[in-house]
Design a binder for these strands. Structure first.
Length: 572
RNA sequence: CGGGGCGUGGCGCAGUCUGGUAGCGCAUCUGCUUUGGGAGCAGAGGGUCGUAGGUUCAAAUCCUAUCGCCCCGACCA
């Protein structure tokens, strides 16, 4: 493409709406434009990247034996009523009516539609296993769309759904998708990690997420430095401490702690570490009761784990202060587990909280804490469970190595769904005995648009985007300098451009009447991997200047054989 | 949905408190000069100040309502 004929100008200033770096760079480099909250138009330069991501996904899905289909974006509500999700989904599901007042949804996901397809088309076990996938726009009416295309309301997703006669076959299909995803993100040139994940509301038995590693990632992931264990922190298991609880050595004592409502102020006042303090959080129970969750002062509650506990409301909700005052007789800030059982409050403690002895906790009286408290002596033993987020240095649940924490952006998720949809929607096939069998399903998603933003989060510098080569919009940019004054520069640049094009290289020529600085800045903002400068200066010596986007210096390249030089660098 | 903030040429902002008929930088267009890291000079075009009411001789500015957008939180395959 000729940049002289490209109408979208790069922005020097960052639009005020953009907070994260990928969003800023995508706007500045003219990859996307916002239409409204969470909706973006993809401009030519951005769309090329999106299509490359899509192509890699498609090729690897095809290679894995999946079959591409295309389902409608809009779906009749009946299917959602049939699966039961019409009631389960909240306002995130965009609902509307057609002219006949028939209810529809804009698909946020396609389990219902694909299951409906399966029950119409699949009748025999001989047709299984099968994996249908599509690359399709989705709409989810997110409470708060943000970060540009990273968390948009409308986005492009690759969603695949597999059908299997039995669970063993599902496992094999799932494993094949794991391999396909690994191939996909590897081919894209991204640094990523597959981690065990919580299955969330989708349910099912096994689930793994694929995260692009980036410091700005929304998710924390934990992995062992001793083996290949890796899990989302939501899911990562926190082990009981290696050293058991010590003996009780001190009596319970009141401590005056006026206005000391946080662990931070408490440890400052008492000159102790947070690891010797017990923190008590009170949440709503299932039945209107309250439930107390005890953690060591230096640990953080894991909401996913907590809301799965028997008797705890799901979703997790911190109890209202008024309700706590009513039941416990004290405002939050001075809550402790002592005496709660007598008030009908169930007490759970994290493994490490349960291992404390002679600990400090709230006294359930304003401005008072207790010290020297011991489980079993001063209050009943709690229900011991895993309640906290793992922290860096925790032992790995596998027993090998320690956990390390990094941040990631979830770009893929694979699930073993089981028979949830096939059973509810009666998608059965005949097995080899001629009996009805309910297929096992898997579902596998990749956020195609999100991959683009994640790639930028992971690969950029102060000058702009640094595309991994497999997804760069163009491979090479030819930059003639001062061509207006030098017919020779223009000739050489045009010839090279034509050669590269003929050789099938994706090439840009910056034939704009612009100063060198402008051209360099734009090429770097766009993140084009290979840059060739054509200028009088080098032509005298019969050389051009080559520079890779990641390099900091120019390299001379011969004018004769320029094509071969570049092809070698591109790696073809 | 709770909390906070912002809507003024395409983009970034000032002006609002204290009412007097809109300004700066970037971008765009024209001309001349310039040409290896986002050029200089001269000139030009472009805004009913988100929208709708109200107060006033007079509203970007004050009042009311409303819409949109952003951030934090809760929420989220």
């Amino acid at each position: 493409m000729r940049l002289s004929q490209y109408p979208i100008a790069n922005l020097k200033e960052v639009p005020a709406e953009a907070e994260v770096i990928s969003h800023q760079l995508m706007l500045r480099a003219g990859l996307i434009r916002r239409l409204s909250a969470g909706q973006y138009t993809w401009l030519p330069m951005g769309l090329r990247v999106l299509r490359k991501v899509e192509t890699i996904v498609r090729e690897e899905m095809d290679r894995a034996g999946a079959l591409e289909i295309l389902m409608p974006t809009t779906q009749p509500a009946e299917l959602w009523m049939e699966s039961g999700r019409w009631g389960q989904f909240g306002p995130e599901l965009l609902r509307f009516k057609d002219r006949h007042q028939r209810e529809y949804v804009y698909g946020p996901t396609h389990e219902e539609v694909v299951t409906d397809l399966a029950r119409r088309e699949l009748h025999s076990y001989r047709q299984l296993p099968v994996n249908f996938y599509q690359i399709q726009l989705k709409f989810r009416d997110e409470v708060r769309p943000r970060f540009g295309v990273m968390r948009a309301r409308e986005f492009l997703m690759k969603d695949a759904y597999s059908f299997h006669l039995d669970e063993a076959c599902l496992q094999r299909g799932y494993a094949a998708m794991y391999r396909a995803y690994t191939a996909i993100f590897t081919r894209m040139g991204l640094t990523f990690r597959a981690v065990q994940a919580d299955t969330g509301s989708i349910g099912g038995t096994g689930s793994q997420e694929f995260h692009v590693l980036a410091d700005s990632g929304e998710d924390a992931i934990a992995f062992s430095d001793g083996d290949d264990y890796a899990a989302n922190v939501e899911k990562a298991e926190a082990m009981a401490p290696a050293t058991p609880r010590g003996p009780a050595t001190r009596p319970v004592t009141d401590i005056d702690t006026p206005r000391t409502k946080t662990i931070e102020t408490l440890t400052a006042l008492l000159a102790c570490t947070a690891a010797t303090v017990l923190k008590t959080l009170v949440v709503d129970g299932e039945d209107g009761q309250l439930v107390a969750l005890c953690l060591r002062g230096d640990h953080e509650l894991n909401a996913i784990k907590a809301q799965k506990l028997p008797g705890v409301a799901n979703p997790l909700h911190l109890a209202a202060p008024e309700r706590i005052l009513e039941v416990i007789g004290c405002e939050p800030g001075f809550i402790g587990p002592v005496g709660l059982a007598a008030r009908g409050v169930k007490v759970f403690a994290d493994h490490s909280a349960a291992a404390l002895a002679d600990f400090v906790c709230g006294a359930n009286r304003k401005d008072v804490h207790l010290s020297g408290v011991n489980w079993g002596r001063d209050l009943p033993e709690p229900i011991i469970t895993d309640l906290r987020n793992v922290v860096d240095g925790d032992p790995s649940p596998t027993g090998t190595g320690q956990l390390r924490l990094v941040r990631g952006i979830e770009v893929g998720h694979i699930f073993q769904l089981g028979q949830k949809y096939s059973a509810t929607m009666k998608a059965t096939v005949l097995d080899d005995q001629g009996k009805d069998a309910v297929p096992f399903m898997g579902c596998y998603g990749i956020g195609v648009t999100r991959v683009v933003a994640a790639a930028i989060e992971q690969n950029h510098d102060e000058r702009g985007i640094v595309w991994p080569e497999p997804i760069a919009p163009y491979q090479v940019v030819v930059v003639p300098l001062n061509a207006a004054r030098s017919p020779r520069v223009s000739e050489v640049a045009e010839k090279l451009y034509a050669q590269l094009q003929a050789a099938g290289v994706e090439v840009l020529i910056d034939d704009r009447d612009a100063r060198p600085g402008v051209k360099f800045a734009d090429a770097e903002l766009w993140g084009i991997p290979h840059r060739v400068v054509v200028a009088e200066r080098g032509l005298e010596a019969g050389t051009l200047e080559y520079r890779h986007r990641r390099a900091s210096d120019n390299e001379a390249m011969p004018l004769e054989g320029a094509l071969a030089f570049l092809q070698e660098r591109i790696g073809r």
